[in-house]
Nucleic acid binder design. Sequence first.
DNA 1: TTGTACGCGTTATCAC
DNA 2: GTGATAACGCGTACAA
Lengths: 350, 350
Amino acid sequence: MAQRTSSVTIRDVARKAGVSPATVSRYLTGTVPVSEETAQRIQAVMDELRYTPNTIARQLATQRSHAIGLLLPDFSHTFFTPLIGGIEAVVSDERYSLLLATRVSTELSNKPVPIGPHNAEGLIIFPGTLSDQEIIRLNKAGYPLVVIYRSSPSGSTVPSITAENVRATAAIIDHLIEEHGRSRIVFVRGPGDQEDSHWREQGYRSSLQDHGIEHDEQLMITGMFDRTLAYRAMSEFLNSDPPHFDAIFAGNDDSAIGIMDALREEGIHVPEDVSVVGFDDMELSSFLNPPLTTVHAPTEEVGSSAARCLFDLLAGKEVAQATFLPTEIVIRRSCGCPHERLLPLKTLNK
Amino acid sequence: MAQRTSSVTIRDVARKAGVSPATVSRYLTGTVPVSEETAQRIQAVMDELRYTPNTIARQLATQRSHAIGLLLPDFSHTFFTPLIGGIEAVVSDERYSLLLATRVSTELSNKPVPIGPHNAEGLIIFPGTLSDQEIIRLNKAGYPLVVIYRSSPSGSTVPSITAENVRATAAIIDHLIEEHGRSRIVFVRGPGDQEDSHWREQGYRSSLQDHGIEHDEQLMITGMFDRTLAYRAMSEFLNSDPPHFDAIFAGNDDSAIGIMDALREEGIHVPEDVSVVGFDDMELSSFLNPPLTTVHAPTEEVGSSAARCLFDLLAGKEVAQATFLPTEIVIRRSCGCPHERLLPLKTLNK
DNA sequence: TTGTACGCGTTATCAC
DNA sequence: GTGATAACGCGTACAA
């Protein structure tokens, strides 16, 4: 099938301008100076012929695609919106294209990776899209990669950009304990293979320990960072003669929605009966009833930092192996506080 | 700068397998049968060498980029999330790539269009990204285009996919009048150049007329489909000795948020004092306080329909010139109804 | 400053 | 069924 474009080539321009294709190319790329006179003639012909350089041919010749890729498990979740926005801003600044694709690594890798060295100069990788093995292989081949919301695969040097989890979670648990006298705090786990979940649990345990509260495995349930699954997990928990509890760390905001639904159905009041806090600070979270106290994660900044890091990589610059973007606590009402306020990061430093 | 990939080419495979590059290509594309024996040998060598076909070279040879593009004014708004999701699903089904870019046509067209014939086989266009002139030019050149949330530029045959506006708006205004006895209904306009806003006003006026209610220009304000701007517009309206009103059609859900904020600040209760309804049914809307009665717009379906339409175009099939996707009314609480329910489309048929 | 000739990696067109 | 060979459109030594 033929190209849909009018396909006027550099040769057509050259012929009509009475120069060689090479000269047109040089005028176009600006690599080598061209005489003022011929430059004007070329420009005139280009305008007249509505010439547009064929990017693909250029890519083949230069061996550069001028595009970077973003691999996500899906697009339906609003969590990704600011992430994509942050990336796109940087990408368009650099006059690059952004290639988007979904992929889940659990599909047994039968499907080929839709974005890679063949169509993008580098890749931003979200957990669950590429296996460690695939990442390491690409990295070893010298292919620029940045992982987000996870650490580098062991043994690799792939830079990692993520929001700080441990201290943030510890701080919000501290708040529950110190300001609201809570001590029986349910922890809602995310997917077992998701690092964020692991680190948040770390922060949870450390806060408990700091306050001399014993860890109780009975208070640990699994919500998979998912609204519906968290709802189910919470309902089951409530209907199975649960141990006493007075607060819930929901794992993330999405889970908090399902959890508050489950509590409501059982006639449990938030925050009077139990405090609920989340993690992420999605757009939604301030509209929940009651408004959700949560950790503000700089999702858009994760996106822009990742993109910038990738471009640094492309430019051959040195980049940090791991970047933890600062978070802050957004106090709203679901913890029991009367007024909304912000606990900036510095107060988090212990 | 050299390609980052290991760059093992079809020639390397051919050499090692003892065949010609052409045979390898044939095996790869499956256009012409290859003997079982050589096929296996080729596959073995490909595995061993970890050969990946170079998409760019293939694109140059076939004159097809195997990608389609989506042009949006920005990515930060969650309204776009389901839209992108709908498109991506179809695109990946077709084993195509999705190219994403932002662009605003008001930048005086000084910036070149980031996606076009040079890197995508077709384009899905959101209002405000490409001028009518640019659209018509691409269309005349035979370049496959689909516009969404707007009609085809006059004189062009670009297919258009959009959510039905007029009947839906009329129906929700009907509801306000008939079920809640409202008659002084404020209409919050969107951007003047946005067709959706125009058609919704059409529906509003028609419902008023059907009920013998006179149109009052004093009840028309402009919220630009934007949360913050709608808030400001509403605040000004309230503070400027406004005429009596008992309901508000917010233009869209995002504006409804700002409008309810403004009302709240003035101590006006929704829905007791005034009913508020929106348009879109964003994820957020059911979480508002009170939950927003609104028109459910099938945003994800607009995306998937647009993508499917574009692929039909690519396949040379006939496509509908204009598609209006059905909407339905989602009754929640901001109108004054006690219970949530759905008014499906059929009840909308007059 | 400019033109010639070749390469980028693949597919398509011929012959065989 | 298979192998040469010519495109595809552009960038870039190299020579002039």
